[in-house]
Amino acid sequence: MAVNDAGAKQVATYWEGMVNSGLADTKAYGTTDFYNGLGSGKYVTYLAAGWGPGYLASVAKTTSGKWRAAPLPQWTAGGNVQGDWGGSSFAVTDQAKNPEVATKVAMDIYGAKNTDAWKIGIDEAYLFPTATPVLESDAFLKKKYDFFGGQTVNDIFVPAYKTISPFSWSPFNSYNFNQLTTGINGAIEKKTSWTAALDTAQANISQYATQQGFKVQ
C-alpha cells in the first residue's frame, strides 16, 4: 500500500506548484463559483474523463464552440500513460430475485445489440459506451460535436481508454479517497505541504486497514 510513493509525490508537488503560482484554481468541485468559472471562460483547461465532454457541454453551454479535446500531457515525452476517473455501468446485483432473467433484460436494454438505445444514450445523454462494439463503432468514434467546434472528440478518449491497464480497487476505496481529498483540501486551505498531506493519508489508511484486520504491506 503506497499513496505517498515517489510517483504520487511528483504529482502532488506539480499541482502544488500550479496552485501556488495561480495557474490552477482550488474552488471546490460542483460549487456555484466552479460552474461560474466554467461558464464565464475563467477556466481554459479541464482535465477530463470519457464522460467529461457531455458534462462540460451541459454545465458550460455559454462556452460552446470554444473547447477542443487533446490527449493528456505526459511526464516523459512520447509516453502514453492514462488514468481512470470513475463512471457508471449497468450491473445486476446478487440481491436480484432472478439474476438470469434480470441479466437478459439488462442485456436487451443496454447491450451492444440495442443500437437504438445507444443512439439515444450517445446523442442525448453523452454516454461513454460500456458496450465495446458500440464504443468502437463509427457512430461513436466519428461523431462530431458542435460544442467542440465539430471535433470528433471520441477519437481522443477511446484510444486513451484502451491504454489503461487492468487494475483493482482497494476493498475500502471510499475511505482512501476521503483521506486523500481531506488531506489535500486541508493543505490547500492552510497552505501547507501537499506531500506531507500524502504522508498523513498513508499513515491514516494504514491504521484503518490494520483496524479492519488487514495485513498492511
Partner: peptide, 26 residues
Amino acid sequence: QPLNPGSITQHYTPNVYAFNQAFSFQ
C-alpha cells in the same frame, strides 16, 4: 461543507464527525 471542504472539515463538529463516520467511512 462542499463549498470549502478545507475549512469545514469532516470532523468540524462532533455531530458532523459522527455522521461522516457512519455514512462516509461505514
